[in-house]
Amino acid sequence: MSRNGKQTSTDNGADTTGSNAVYHHDDAENLPAHSHHDNEVLSETNLKSYWRANVKVLITLLSAWAFVSFVCGIILGDWLDQFYLGGFPLGFWFTQQGAMLCFVAIIFIYHFWMQRIERAHGVDDDDNHEPSQQRED
């Protein structure tokens, strides 16, 4: 618990996310195999700012998701048909192929975006993975 107290005070002093992350990594290395909650080594403020960043990502990407499916696919579908993509009326293309391709893109953007945020906040899961697991990205 004293560790927790010390950490909180350090965090209050160091405002930027970057220094928090560095602090976390140093701290994690010095720790013995902490068997319980890993996030005990993370500060409250850091976790809060991580979660806020996460929610911001979700709102942005879900807006994109709603836009391509509900707006382009249905609500503005007829209007978009006046434009053409090759031989496809645009609104029709969104319903048959376009929305799906955008969905795939949204999920991969989410993956990479979150990875950056998590590394910045020191909450990514790279530290703990088994040695047999290879990363390919």
Partner: peptide, 13 residues
């Protein structure tokens, strides 16, 4: 705990 990605491999605590 589930909101934080770190530690999934050793989770189930």
């Amino acid at each position: 705990d589930i909101r934080i990605p770190a530690g999934a491999g050793v989770a189930h605590h």
